[in-house]
Amino acid sequence: MTVISPSSFLVADIGGTNARFAIADADGQGRPTLAAIRELRASEYPTLAAAAGDYLASLGTERPRTGVFAVASPVTSDAIRFTNSPWSFSVRALQTELALEALVLINDFAAVAHAVANLRRDDVRAIGVDTTTLAGDGGDGHYVVLGPGTGLGVGALARRGGVSIVIETEGGHVGFAPGNAYELKLLEALWRDHPRISAERLLSGQGLLNLYRAVCAVDGEPASVDTPEQISRQAAAAPESACGRSVALFCELLGAFAGDAVLMHGAWGGVYLAGGITQKLLPWIERGGFRGRFESKGRFETLMKRVPVLAITHPQPGLLGAAARGLLARPDR
């Protein structure tokens, strides 16, 4: 049974596919800690309140009094509607239903940005150029956090005097920019089914399937698989197949997008890559064209070669970031 102390609070990381919950607190150094972590399939619950209620019931009679939820949605009002999920809710109504004294909502990649300053060396893996300095080491700097999952999340982070300043964005919905003639053909193929092609339309779970179908259409091959999981499995078995070429191109496009995000935000301190797909495709990202497309920015190529990219390997960066955000509200912080 999890012990709920007066300082403990509920944290959640709610995406389009999974709903993750935990009890958060601080250790002796004031760093966020997580306990009683549980991951639920969003499709198995009619509402977020039902999923959260199931989690709280598993804790027993003790309940946290406050909560911080990270959600895959813009957080601009009391009404929250998920971008890649049928769930929607009122923040005030959810707080009442869960019997919480306070409930803070933040964007899911804002949570990842809050987590960045709490990551240790063994929580990250360098893609290309390494760095001896992490965002949490005390210096000032600008960073971008991004990553593909059910959608494509993007957030920005400024560190000033040991304090994290997080900027929530919906950067995954900027328009896709082809980088060569072949990618222009892919864009034209995608236009047949979608009036606007965002980066997320290609750089997400469903995006991998969209990309694969476009590759098949342009290359004159039949599309024989129907899910991102099938594409990944076939790519591993046959790297030269349409699936393999699609996964390799996915990683190249992710690198190009990450490089553009650095330029847009002046994130010379580096990029932190998150998202479930990042973990699954990390070997492809490391050995493929990700880094080349990341650096290939014309007159800024020399500068981009010095910008580190760190893949987050911490198992729960969203929950960790929600916990870090919750600690900021404490009177002693």
Rank of each mutant, 00 (worst) to 15 (best):
V116D: 07
A117S: 15
A117L: 10
A117T: 14
L119A: 07
R121I: 11
R121C: 12
D122Y: 03
D122M: 05
D122N: 13
V124H: 14
V124Y: 10
R125E: 11
R125T: 01
I127Y: 10
I127M: 06
V129C: 05
V129E: 14
D130M: 04
D130W: 06
T132S: 15
T133G: 03
T133M: 11
T133V: 15
L134P: 10
L134G: 15
L134T: 12
D137F: 05
G138E: 14
G139W: 04
D140V: 02
G141K: 05
G141Y: 05
G141I: 01
G141N: 01
H142S: 14
H142M: 09
Y143E: 07
Y143R: 05
V144H: 02
V145D: 13
V145I: 12
V145T: 09
V145H: 11
V145C: 15
V145N: 06
G147V: 01
T150W: 06
G151E: 02
G151D: 03
G151W: 05
G153M: 09
G155H: 02
G155P: 00
A156F: 11
L157Q: 11
L157V: 03
G161K: 12
G161V: 00
G162T: 02
G162N: 07
G162I: 00
V166S: 03
I167G: 15
E168D: 15
T169M: 03
E170F: 02
G172F: 04
H173Y: 09
H173T: 09
V174S: 10
F176C: 00
F176G: 05
A177G: 05
G179A: 14
N180L: 12
Y182N: 09
L184C: 05
L184F: 02
E188Y: 02
E188W: 00
A189C: 08
D193S: 14
D193A: 14
H194R: 15
R196L: 12
I197C: 05
I197P: 06
S198Y: 04
S198I: 05
A199D: 04
L202G: 01
S204T: 04
